[in-house]
């Protein structure tokens, strides 16, 4: 269980990263915290020709708050964001969700942007991005662009990032109202069977669900009465196209979406 051979670049500037990506394209992989990628290399699920280590780039290791938007650079580790004193005030949803990301020992290395890049359907950071309606900042050698959360996740481990693009940062808008998060996994730290995030919106509530569909998905609802909410949740539960695996059944997932979804919606609307 050793990785296949690859070249390794320790980038000293973002331009070096972009140059490497534009030259090698799909054969290159950005190495940030490595908590997903390295396991895939060890299992030889991934066999890039080149790894570009971005973790020595200070300019990517920044958390900035501006006009109600928090921008987190590609080098920011999950533990660093969790320890950021402004987190609970600016992004309470992430303060709730981050402790569910892996374990202390993986959050210490893993990055926020790396988790987005990996796009595991059960991961908490993509769910938070969808729930809050954030943006992913992409950059290649020629240009920068921003992609909205709803357009970034294309499928299981598939994103809108082009092969020559680096995820430079991600930005999350601070929500105006309340938020809630809950996750069910087989054990603490496991991939979510169902993870739900609810955020109050000006007109009502947004509920986002991870772990069920191929990508985290969200629905916006106005304030609904009990039976209308149950109908909306039931519809959403079926739209997620849940499936069976060794850890849970599709029915179980739909049930959790209905029950936890209702609890969270009520919680943020109270």
């Amino acid at each position: 269980m050793k990785p296949a051979a690859f070249d390794y670049v320790r980038a000293e500037s973002v331009n070096e990263v972009l140059e490497g990506l534009s030259k090698e394209g799909g054969n290159a992989r950005v190495l940030a915290g490595g908590q997903s990628l390295m396991a895939m290399l060890n299992m030889r699920l991934a066999k890039p020709r080149l790894l570009i280590d971005i973790m020595r780039l200070k300019e990517l290791n920044r958390i900035e708050e501006q006009a109600g938007v928090v921008t987190i650079g590609a080098g920011v580790r999950q533990a660093a964001l969790l320890a950021w004193p402004e987190l609970a005030r600016t992004l309470p949803l992430l303060a709730l969700a981050l402790p569910w990301v892996g374990h202390v020992q993986t959050r210490s290395r893993g990055t926020i942007c790396g988790s987005l890049a990996h796009a595991d359907p059960s991961a908490e950071m993509p769910l938070a991005l969808i729930a809050l309606g954030g943006e992913v900042h992409l950059r290649n050698a020629r240009r920068r662009r921003r992609v909205a959360a709803s357009e970034f996740f294309l499928g299981m481990m598939a994103t809108a990032r082009a092969e020559d693009e680096l995820i430079e940062a991600v930005s999350f808008p601070s929500p105006g109202g309340g938020c809630a998060f809950r996750e069910v996994a087989r054990r603490h730290g496991d991939f979510a069977i169902v993870a739900c995030a609810a955020v109050a919106t000006p007109k009502g509530v947004r509920l986002a669900v991870g772990g069920v569909a191929d990508v985290p998905m969200a629905r916006d609802w106005p304030r609904l009465d009990r039976s209308a909410l149950d109908d909306a949740l039931n519809g959403f539960a079926y739209e997620l196209n849940a499936r069976d695996d060794v850890h849970a059944t599709a029915r179980y997932r739909r049930d959790l979406v209905r029950i936890i979804g209702r609890d969270l919606v009520r919680e943020v609307l109270q």
Binding site: R10, L31, G34, Q35, M38, D53, A79, Q105, R109
Partner: peptide, 24 residues
């Protein structure tokens, strides 16, 4: 990266040494 037996500390960070390259 699951069992934790290989955990070491790198620059003050808990680190799974099996998910880290020597070069890093």
């Amino acid at each position: 990266g699951v069992c934790g037996a290989c955990t070491v500390i790198v620059d003050g960070m808990l680190t799974r040494s099996c998910l880290t390259l020597a070069a890093q």
